[in-house]
Design a protein around this nucleic acid. Structure first.
Lengths: 341, 341
DNA sequence: CATTGCTGTCGATACGCATCGACACCCCGC
DNA sequence: GCGGGGTGTCGATGCGTATCGACAGCAATG
């Protein structure tokens, strides 16, 4: 292993000078800097992460707690991981992974072992038991998702209330006269995730405001059978009469099964009714047919979270008035929207 | 921060004794052990990762290099990350993430900074420039994927050759008389990933062995338009005559677009022709319609990789005769297979 | 009873880096 | 020519843990 001592010897300076060259915390003469940098280059010196962390009390690592729950939406998580990792690297930090199933202990472990300088906590539940723990850690924690009581923790999330409203607004504005929300499956509801309630609230409010016929159904699970069942229920509830029907599907995993169930019944999205999904653009583009969607903006959400995080780490002021930062979803019309009348 | 010194003081022993209680590397009297463990519990002591790494030359961290390339298959990657992370935790290790776009430098960084004790490298290309670098690192590297020249590195991967063979075998055995391989898109081909060639080879060989009509087409990209174009080409090539056609689609991202293109043409998979996909079971279950598939077995592959990795770390003998370990894909018949005749 | 071998504990040290205080040196102004 | 304020470098120290050698106490052995 090449140490800063080796570099110092080759450059003919002391070890501390090498350290100061690298950190820039003291002024160094151009000549010395050149020699040291040359030595670093020659030897391929890389500072030992453990020693650096021990001496500086900074690990240069971000802890990322990801939901690997069985029911979790696989596709949706990866863009978060990707963006967070890349943002971290831009600030010369690394990302260490923890899984959700470690629960609150995982958080204290990351913090107390000084494994990381800050933690990003994904998919926070309404009354997530990890929240009080997170609030008491010695490292800052950024939440992706908004719990009922953020306890002063910084949160970033999609504005799900707005998303619900936008979905219904769009349908109402394009002359639909009834809306069915094919909601989240029961196991997701059981997990009591905050965004579910926020989305439903937004949709309900908008429907009320427009005075449009509105119903909610929730499938037993995300399988095709589940979608079928929910659809049966939805259509039965509203009756088979004509008129323009809009279906709102907030669970990304339900979109494809729902589209297929509709096609199986001879109902063509975009011809016989409208379907609006809440999913990443990628999912929307590759569904069959491509579904009109409100984007989940995982990259934007992640980037904002990381921006706050690094401000906290650098002791800069965090410029938000509130501790909760919401990202506006983006509506993209695709093939599943009825043409304007 | 609570240190092992604090624990020692509370338990009335020396710091080194605390260390020995935790590591078990020397015998400790039951009474002392009890007192120390009690003190640890009381104070909630967690050993400082940096200090531990510095002193022991072991970071207890596994480096994971993930492909976040723009064209990469998002859905496919997550099960690997998940399984690898969980396996690591079972052995009391953490996982640090590096992105593919850091290239070979990312590898040396992980290794030379002593950020991790071993590296898992995903989605290795045929002549991956990272391979020679990996072979020279001071930490063991496990490859997921098989390069042309593994240079003595351990590799784990799905047996793609066998997968190609199994796909064609299945079609031949179920009385199909022509097979079209709707191959990987051109950008994937351009990346020259080893598994692509292996799969094609297996399929070709099997087709030759069965004496079955066989053709390969490759779409410009994974969009629906791309699938359409490839399908046009495929059907044109083979002519529209009757008989039982089998379509093999090895790229998970092309499966859904292909199925949709077929349906658009009035060709129903499972009625008018067979489709076999190469994808995770999850993808197969949720496609429309559910596609007969050969599984990619990401969990199995990951687990085997981690087993080898920890054997290397523990200096146990690695019980494989070869440095390459291949996992057998599993065939599951679903709705896209023609009924037996 | 002396000797040997074990068991359990301790003190000291090293790991590689960041940082603090010290200080030699130079340039400026008087 | 002398004092003063920078500037650039160095040596020493500490971060928290693992590990090595030393050794006291004890049981078994002859």
């Amino acid at each position: 292993m090449v140490t800063s001592r080796d570099v110092a010897r080759l450059a003919g300076v002391s070890q501390s000078t090498v350290s100061y060259v690298m950190s820039g915390r003291r002024s160094i003469s151009p000549e010395t800097r050149r020699r040291v940098e040359e030595a670093i280059e020659t030897l391929g010196f890389q500072p030992n992460a453990g020693a650096r962390a021990l001496a500086s009390q900074r690990s240069q690592v971000i802890g990322l707690v990801v939901p690997f729950a069985p029911g979790a939406d696989m596709t949706g998580v990866l863009p978060f991981i990707e963006t967070i990792t890349k943002c971290a690297r831009e600030e010369d930090h690394n990302v260490i992974l923890a899984t959700e199933d470690e629960g609150a202990e995982g958080l204290t472990r990351l913090s107390d072992q000084s494994l990381c300088d800050a933690i990003v906590l994904m998919e926070v539940g309404s009354k997530d038991p990890r929240i009080p723990v997170a609030a008491g850690l010695s490292v800052p924690v950024i939440l992706i998702g908004v719990p009922d009581d953020p306890e002063g923790l910084y949160c970033v999330d999609l504005d799900y209330t707005l998303a619900g409203r936008m979905a219904v607004d769009e349908l109402a504005d394009s002359a639909h006269d009834r809306v069915v929300l094919l909601g989240y499956p029961r196991d997701v509801l059981a997990r009591d995730v905050n965004f579910v309630r926020r989305f439903l609230r937004g949709a309900e409010d908008a429907a009320a405001a427009h005075g449009i016929a509105y119903a909610e159904v929730s499938p037993p699970d995300t399988s095709r059978a589940g979608a079928e069942a929910a659809l049966d229920e939805a259509l039965a509830e509203l009756g088979p009469d004509g008129g323009r029907l809009g279906l709102v599907v907030p669970d990304p995993q339900l979109i494809q099964p729902t589209l297929q169930s509709l096609l199986d019944r001879g109902l063509v999205p975009g011809r016989d009714l409208s379907v609006i999904g809440l999913c990443t653009d990628r999912t929307a583009e590759t569904s069959t047919p491509p579904v009109t969607n409100l984007s989940l903006e995982p990259r934007d959400v992640s980037r904002r979270a990381m921006r706050i995080l690094f401000r906290l780490l650098n002791r800069e002021s965090v410029l938000t008035t509130s501790t909760v930062e919401l990202v506006t979803p983006r509506l993209t019309l695709r093939q599943t929207s009825l043409p304007a009348r």
